[in-house]
Write a protein that binds this DNA or RNA. Structure first.
Lengths: 249, 249
DNA sequence: GTCGGTTGTCTATAATACTAGACAAATAAT
DNA sequence: ATTATTTGTCTAGTATTATAGACAACCGAC
């Protein structure tokens, strides 16, 4: 029942590191300590050097800290819960959990709608779109990167407004959309890509949560299509039945 | 921009295989063909043999099919969307997408509530619980495995009812709960464990979507806590704002 | 049939990952 | 101080992974 396999293309030490990291995330080792290298070697049925390599990798990631003669300790970690509901907003959703939650605009460009986006936003095919790429951070730690599409005609001043306001919600307000609601969210998951690892400071082998969502104005007209990629080891998505203090019926 | 790295503990051929699999899932190669081995070797800046090993792995998984002299073709794949909302039910949610959707009971036992479960289900600490483990399948393909907890006193006949009825919804109905609603769902993601790979027939390196959910009776009393693990390459979770024909306000 | 392009197979070599054992160095308890 | 426990370092051998090149086998188009 060691759970690790040979000849799979994934080095044993990495499988072991992933297993230990998952075990920590799963709430094992809540005593703050890892078993000894010898015990882990026996459990995984590998050489102690292989376990040492796994632990060294986790230490480089900052997941554990090891001291000669004493053992290996688990570094306490925090996980943020990101609520998804009718009133989903990045900064507000993390309020209370972190000191600072910000989204940074890391790029924007104009492009034409493909078939899917046009249908989602109820625009004509090849309609001009505004594409915004953002990075969501909490306390300086990157949590998500996202691509957002808007009708370029209706929201021509959006990028400038974002530059002034620093958030999509406020930028939309400056463009005359004082309120909007989340109408759909689709969630999947996949291994992190190279771009994910770079933008979100993830380790190889990390996992991202993928969401595709659509926001609409109070009249139900779609105004924003987004694809977000969350660092799965730092974020839990929470689907609430209804937000408190919502404006909606 | 090849996206693959050396010395990460993941063999190059596996990184390439994962990258190609992700690209397919991302909608690239929708023409049904993969670039030639030589082109891929150039793109990833590796030897052709390394690319061949990656393609061979994907062929073993059934993701691609390769014919000498012709090239490598992408095997069309299906992805199921699993709706999450107030009225989340496994079989009904997949209706229309697949021919048959069933949950199988793969184990059940009695255990006592830990602190977290007791709080979730509003039971006293160490209250007796019924633990059911199920496997969700669509058209014979495993999609999810889940653990469910119920108040053992209130639902003493649940396991027998499940044996007769073949679904949790109907088993609950037989125990006097004719209706229930989803009150919370938390979603995260992680690499598949060995048990995941076994139960869900996943390849090493696969990813699972994790949900923790609570169902309550119409009076709002929690009756069921569940933890599900979905095969992320076969399932998309969809968060709908509200289900049609719901009983709730 | 012939040809260009593609995948299949073989040999050989180098780099990386894993195992094995021994002993040093640090920690914590006695 | 002594001791048991635990991590750190070193050497060496084996197995897996990656590279390199050459050529065969096969497909589709002409």
């Amino acid at each position: 029942m060691s759970g690790i396999e040979r000849r799979t293309g994934v080095a044993l030490w990495r499988q072991i590191a992933d297993d230990i990291r998952a075990a920590i995330g799963n709430g094992d080792h809540d005593d703050g300590r890892l078993p000894t290298e010898a015990a882990l070697a026996a459990r995984f049925d590998v050489n102690r050097h292989t376990v040492r390599q796994a632990i060294a990798a986790l230490a480089r990631e900052g997941v554990v800290e090891t001291v000669q003669g004493r053992g290996t300790a688990v570094v306490p970690r925090r996980r943020v819960t990101y609520p998804i509901g009718a009133r989903t907003r990045f900064s507000a959703g993390l309020g209370g959990q972190v000191a600072t939650a910000v989204t940074r605009l890391i790029g924007s460009l104009r492009e034409t709608a493909n078939e899917e986006l046009a249908a989602t936003l109820r625009l004509s095919p090849n309609a001009p779109l505004l594409r915004l790429e953002t990075l969501g951070e909490a306390d300086g730690v990157p949590l998500s990167r996202a691509v957002h599409w808007f009708d370029a005609e209706r929201f021509s001043g959006l990028v400038e407004a974002y530059g002034r306001e620093g958030s999509i919600t406020r930028a939309l307000a400056a463009c005359g959309v004082s309120d909007y609601v989340r109408v759909s969210t689709e969630i999947s998951a996949a291994p992190a890509t190279g771009a994910d690892r770079e933008d979100l400071a993830l380790q190889p082998g990390a996992v991202v949560l993928l969401t595709r969502s659509v926001n609409a104005d109070p009249q139900g007209r779609p105004i924003q299509a987004s694809r977000s990629r969350f660092a799965a080891d730092r974020v839990t998505l929470s689907v609430a039945p209804d937000e408190p203090a919502t404006d909606l019926p």
